[in-house]
Design a binder for these strands. Sequence first.
DNA 1: CGTCCACAGGAATGACGGGCGG
DNA 2: CCGCCCGTCATTCCTGTGGACG
Length: 401
Amino acid sequence: MTSESLDSIFQRAIHNTPLFKAHQALQSDYVPDHLPFRNQQITAVGEVLAPILHQSRPSNLLIYGKTGTGKTVVTRHVTNRLDNTCKKQHVRSSFVYCNTRLSGTEYRTLAELANGVGLKIPFTGLALSEVLTRIQEHIKENALHLIFILDEIDSLVRTFGDDLLYGLTTSSEKVTPGFISLIGISNDLQFKEDLGARVLSRLSEEELVFPPYSAEELRSILTDRACVALLPNSYTSAAINLCAALSGSEHGDARRAVDLLRVAGEIAEREGVGQLEEKHVRIALQKIDQDRISEALRTLPLHAKLVLLSSIHSSRNQQSKSSSGLVYDNYADLCKKTGLEPLTQRRVSGLLTELDTLGLVTATVINYGRYGRTKRINSQVSLETASKVFSDDQAIRHLVV
DNA sequence: CGTCCACAGGAATGACGGGCGG
DNA sequence: CCGCCCGTCATTCCTGTGGACG
């Protein structure tokens, strides 16, 4: 990009009519003061947690609901308020939030919890049980009244099993005079089935289900948010409606709707047309999907990138016949060109299932009878997208330019 | 109706980077 | 400093398997 075009970008930005007055109100981590259509859930969470005000241990709580049904935001809203009340009343309490999917492993989840209670834990080297014991001791010594919020708990259990949860649920007895209550948040309604009975009964002392928002409710939520975040008269109600409709069509996913509105707003602002319209929403829809994929690609480990690249190539050449064997040969080839030692077939098979769970590839096990059993691989990512992202990677850019 | 393909995917094991307590 | 244990990622070795072919 030349400096001239940079200048013109800045110039345009100066003269553009801004659309946002409070951009943060459309960020995904924003917790609004007012959460419409969730009064029932707010009350329920509040009632479960309220005992902490009398110094007694609240029940563990398990919250279910699909993505974007307000689970996280309601929990944060209630705990924030409760935290304030506790401070005002001089009641001891601490709240620690952790997204277990983002932490990635059991160890890092525990480390984050430890951090939340003011305990320093090295980023590796300790046994899990050792970390847990330290946390317990710390809580005991300081008689902490603690509420752990474990978000996206389903992904933790799916990859690592319920051992960690077992450890945490059984901790509460070992930390008197302190106590621990757990709030588990799951996007997966089937999640309970992955859970052993010993954990399930303890974790779900209370349960709460969040229903999806209806299209009408989404529309109302978006209108409220737009009112806070955007300048008056900078958007059409048709654009809002479209955001709601697009996100509501599958299941009422409010987070997606809000993201959509924000990105659409950014696009409209950049265009400098002074008003957010339906066409910006449509562009935003594509951009969001694109960004999601690019981000996933960028953060892939090196060999996973190579495997993905091979999948793209072989699903191009072989159409639907692409098998894991072909992908592997292809991959081994790429490794040779790059001067890398190829991983084993077993490992690549594992990487393929990982790519599948990321949604970058579809891997279905299929039987060709006499001709064996394999995974049929279809790349969900276009060569163009992959090339664009991978050309930033020193190690493999020569494969895509 | 048994065979046998081309892998899937579980289990055990090892290399590595790192912290622990002594 | 040492010897030990840990989590993580990969390897090696293994058993399992649905169904077209003969």
